[in-house]
Each structure stands twice: as structure tokens, then as C-alpha cells.
């Protein structure tokens, strides 16, 4: 397992896997979009607006999946202090924020024709909004702490605190929502979804997941390269002025 965690090995692995992954993503995305617009039927209540579901639900799923990826990497950072885990964690935060944003915006655009309003303080919308805020906080933390190792550990701690707290937030927002039952007509997401709608949804979800994995691998590769560049610049500066430069980052195994 450690062989795969070696950053140099990881870079060659990414270079080899990425073209295939990108091709699979493109093919699935094309198939999913085709099914969304030409195969899936219009809902008998919602009409064609239900097609927004095929990007809304996959991005909602990814907003969770990305957080789980980040939490797993956070464990890697704190337990094994692995630079690859640091890079994976840093790469995941903006992606998670982007997909959560897409989830919120598409939900809003779906809500306007269906509920007649851009935003309701519905339990699900509200907890996704809080998740979005947590992502933004993590990104701000990454940007504020300069030293990469320290930033990674701080972000890891916050991410793991979030793992404990997000279910609590979800529960309390649900409780709050039943307390102030809004007048909206949002039914509790029916599990009885017709197969003709389920298949396009599954294809789109898979396409989005592959898209996230490709983007995440690329962004992780960038972070590794950025650290390497940082270290080499330090070493070069050190060689230039005869060993006086700050060598704090130089011993980092990257």
C-alpha cells in the first residue's frame, strides 16, 4: 500500500490513469445527458423541470462524497503525516465547495418553478448551506496558514471535527424545521422513483463521481508539484547564498 502512497509513484500513476478516466467520464456524461433529455420522461406533476434533478442530486451526493474523501485524507495527515494525504485534502476542499455550490444553485433553480420561490428554509437546503459554509471556512484556513504542513494539520483537525458535527447539524436543522413547519409543498423525497428515471440518475451520478475523481487526482498532482517547486526554490536559494536560507521546508520528503 505504501508503494502507492509514494508521491513520485503517485504522479506516474496519475499520468497513466488520467486519460482513461477522462475518456470514461466524457462517455458517461454524454450518455447521461442524452438520457436526461431524450430518454427520461417528464414528471406528471413537475413537467420537464424534473430534469434539473439529474444534476442536482449527483452534485448533492458529491458534496457528501467529497467531504468523506477529505476526512479520510485528514486521517492520513494526522495519523501517518503523509504528504500525499495533505495534498489530497487540500485539493478536495475547493472541489467540494464547487459541487455544493452547484447543488445549491440548481436546487434554487428547481425550486423557483416548483415552489414559486428561489429559496425555502427547508431542512435539507439549510443543512447543505451550512456544509457549504464549512467548506468555505476550510478554504479560508488553507489560504491563511502559510506553512503547508501546519495548514494541513489544522485543516485536518477542523475536517474531523466537522465529521462529528455535521450529523448533529443535520439533526438539529431537521428538528428546527419540524418546529417551524414551512408552508412549502415539499414531499419527503419519495423512494418510489420510476426505473425510467432511476437509470438516467444513476448514470449521471456515476459520471459526476468519475468527474470528481479525475479533477481530484489532477488537483492533488498540482499540490504535489507545488510543494516540490517550493522545496526546490528553497534549495536553490540556499545554494545561491551559501546555506543561509530558511531550510524549514527542505527536509520535507516530497
Amino acid at each position: 500500500m505504501w508503494k502507492y502512497a509514494n508521491p513520485t509513484f503517485f504522479l506516474t500513476l496519475v499520468d497513466r490513469v488520467l486519460p482513461w478516466l477522462a475518456a470514461a467520464t466524457a462517455a458517461l456524461m454524454a450518455a447521461g445527458l442524452y438520457m436526461t433529455f431524450f430518454v427520461a420522461p417528464a414528471d406528471y406533476q413537475q413537467g420537464d423541470a424534473v430534469r434539473i434533478m439529474y444534476i442536482h442530486v449527483p452534485s448533492a451526493w458529491l458534496s457528501m462524497f467529497c467531504y468523506m474523501t477529505m476526512a479520510a485524507s485528514a486521517l492520513g495527515t494526522l495519523v501517518w503525516r503523509h504528504p500525499l494525504a495533505d495534498a489530497a485534502q487540500k485539493a478536495a476542499a475547493p472541489l467540494g465547495a464547487a459541487f455544493t455550490f452547484v447543488c445549491l444553485v440548481t436546487g434554487s433553480l428547481w425550486g423557483k418553478p416548483m415552489w414559486g420561490t428561489w429559496w425555502v428554509w427547508d431542512a435539507r437546503l439549510t443543512s447543505v448551506l451550512v456544509l457549504f459554509l464549512i467548506y468555505l471556512g476550510l478554504i479560508a484556513l488553507w489560504q491563511t496558514i502559510e506553512e503547508p504542513g501546519k495548514a494541513a494539520r489544522a485543516a485536518a483537525i477542523l475536517t474531523l471535527v466537522g465529521v462529528v458535527n455535521i450529523p448533529i447539524i443535520k439533526f438539529s436543522v431537521d428538528w428546527w424545521n419540524t418546529l417551524h413547519q414551512p408552508a412549502s409543498v415539499f414531499r419527503a423525497g419519495g423512494p418510489t422513483i420510476a426505473p425510467s428515471m432511476l437509470w438516467p440518475l444513476l448514470v449521471m451520478a456515476l459520471a459526476f463521481t468519475l468527474l470528481f475523481i479525475s479533477l481530484h487526482l489532477m488537483a492533488t498532482r498540482n499540490e504535489i508539484l507545488r510543494r516540490r517547486l517550493h522545496r526546490l526554490t528553497m534549495l536553490a536559494a540556499n545554494a545561491a547564498d551559501g546555506g543561509q536560507a530558511d531550510l524549514r521546508f527542505a527536509d520535507m520528503e516530497v
Binding site: L133, L141, I145, L158, N165, I169, S172
Partner: peptide, 25 residues
């Protein structure tokens, strides 16, 4: 988390306020 930062106050609020939602509710 923000102890070593020069201007950590605003960042701290951004980090903590979402987590404080359940307490507020």
C-alpha cells in the same frame, strides 16, 4: 486553530459559526 495567525479573529468566526448552529437552534 488560529492562535498563531496575526489576524485570526475573522477567520475564527468563519470557522466556528457554522459549527455553532445546533447550539443556537
Amino acid at each position: 486553530l488560529t492562535a498563531t495567525l496575526r489576524r485570526g479573529g475573522l477567520l475564527m468566526a468563519i470557522l466556528v459559526l457554522p459549527m455553532a448552529v445546533p447550539v443556537l437552534i
